[in-house]
Design a protein around this nucleic acid. Structure first.
Lengths: 110, 110
DNA sequence: TCACATACCTAATTCTGTTATGTATATTTG
DNA sequence: CAAATATACATAACAGAATTAGGTATGTGA
């Protein structure tokens, strides 16, 4: 129920990049919600983690943001910079490989 | 080559527990070597990470250690405490599930 | 009106891995 | 044989990232 927590460390960056690659355009709050839904609340992204991460990635030049008013509230949408697609892909591959190794180490019987 | 690094964070505890569950009895240096071999150097456990982790897990009561002299050098072997098997299993399951979710998030196409 | 959902943000703290050392013995190699 | 390398333990300073806990503001439903 309270689930992973500590596991998230280090992987959050790449999770965010992967989601944006896949969905084109998302805002912070949405990323938290979608991730919870997609993982049955087992990966519980918190806002305290997501916003600093988005800011960091934007600062690093991997993302750009645009503000938009929707239903009276401001949303800040993030997208991948075209120029960083290959960088993003390699990060995703790296983490995917890591996840594979993890599985091997945890369940060597499989 | 230099690989993951940051990904390791948070997962090291559980990796160690899983290896010990599987191999019964290992010493720190061995855990580093075996993990590198098993993952083609892609998960590069360092001694600066492994020893504090082993000490921590022993302190928490999940492990116990015995020293043994082999070929003139002292080795410190670690094993799981019987009493903590169920705890260890649930941690491993949790991380395995996390790895699964990670895969889903990263490669939604699969 | 009050609670809750939406939507953003940041600061203090904690945790844990990296990097860099240090000690010591055994083995390999030039 | 001396020097380098591998084995095997350990700790300390530092850095980075998530947790926890707070804050602001608007819209909606009871």
């Amino acid at each position: 129920m309270d689930s992973n927590k500590k596991f998230l460390n280090g992987t959050l960056n790449t999770i965010v990049l992967a989601l944006l690659k896949d969905n084109g355009r998302m805002y912070g709050y949405e990323i938290c919600q979608k991730t919870r839904e997609a993982t049955n609340n087992q990966i519980n992204l918190t806002e305290g983690a997501i916003y600093p991460t988005l800011h960091r990635l934007e600062k690093e030049g991997l993302l750009f943001s645009t503000k938009e008013k929707v239903n009276g509230r401001v949303r800040k949408y993030y997208s991948l910079n075209q120029s960083s697609i290959s960088e993003v892909n390699s990060q995703i591959d790296l983490l995917a490989k890591f996840a594979g190794h993890l599985r091997t180490l945890l369940k060597p019987s499989l």
